Amino acid sequence: YMSNTIIILVNIILAVVLAVGLTPVWVWWERRIAGFIQDRSGPNRCNIGPMRLGGLIQALADMLKLVFKEDFTPAHVRHKFFFTVAPVVVFMASFLTFAVIPYADVLVIDGEAHTMQAIPTELGIMWFLAFAGLSVYGIILGGYSSGNKYGLLGSIRASAQVISYEAAMGLALISII
């Protein structure tokens, strides 16, 4: 029983490291491609003295900017707690969709098979679709808590778009299954 717990913890740590650890690489890659498409100098021109590191310094500067940025809540916000929680709901919903994606084949230790995914469940696609749909609540919560009718209308419109995209995604997944 202890080995199952350790395997599950290792799976969760690996999934988090892969999901969060690859984000700077994807951001760097996207910036390089966007710079090429827009015919402008990309982040590879950013440097500290003689050190360029192929554009990774720009990602480091962005990270430092976000870490030291002030957490600002406008004065007109009606529900400050919900206004703060709304992005957390969206982040957690999108982050938990990665929990059921297997990142390796089944690992066999002492004749016992272990599924290599953060949450070893048989739900798979259903888990993915369920948590992808939960992001709608964060969007609506952010619009409602802003205390602005245009913010609320914008969040309802964005939620309608997300729901309609999920319908198409669900139909595409059903055709695969």
Score class of each variant (00 low, 15 high):
S146L: 09
G124P: 02
V106K: 08
W29G: 06
Y1C: 05
V90K: 14
I163T: 13
W26P: 00
R52L: 09
A93F: 08
F81H: 03
V89F: 09
E30F: 11
I48V: 07
S155N: 06
E122T: 12
L134Q: 05
A118D: 04
R32C: 04
A130T: 10
K149M: 13
F98G: 11
L123E: 15
V90N: 14
L56W: 09
R40L: 07
S146W: 00
G142I: 03
I109K: 03
P87R: 04
L134Y: 13
V67D: 05
T121K: 09
G133V: 03
L107A: 14
I139M: 12
A75T: 14
I177A: 12
F72E: 10
C46R: 06
N11L: 09
L171W: 04
G124H: 14
S175Y: 11
W28E: 03
I37Y: 08
A118E: 11
G49V: 08
A172V: 14
M126T: 15
G111A: 04
S94M: 15
H114D: 10
E30M: 11
M51N: 09
M63Y: 07
W26E: 10
F68Y: 15
F98C: 13
A158I: 04
R157P: 01
R40G: 00
A19P: 07
K69I: 13
P74Y: 01
L9K: 02
M2S: 11
A168Y: 05
T121P: 12
A15E: 07
G138S: 03
Q58L: 12
L22M: 10
P87Q: 09
I6P: 00
L56C: 04
I33N: 02
I119L: 15
A93R: 12
G54W: 01
A167W: 08
W29I: 06
K65L: 14
D62W: 05
M63G: 07
M51E: 07
V90H: 08
A104W: 05
K65P: 01
A86M: 02
F68V: 08
R45M: 10
R45H: 08
V27G: 01
I156A: 14
V67L: 15
W26R: 01
M92W: 09
A61H: 07
K149I: 12
M116F: 05
C46T: 10
G42S: 08
V20W: 11
Y1M: 15
F128E: 11
N4L: 02
A160E: 12
V106Q: 03
S145F: 01
M51S: 09
S94F: 15
C46M: 10
S3V: 15
N11R: 01
A99P: 03
A61M: 11
E166F: 08
A15R: 06
A75W: 00
Q58A: 14
Y103F: 15
F128K: 05
T23A: 12
G143R: 03
V67F: 11
A130L: 13
L129G: 05
L60W: 09
E112A: 15
F98T: 08
A75G: 13
R31S: 06
I139C: 02
I7R: 02
V27Y: 08
P24A: 02
P74N: 10
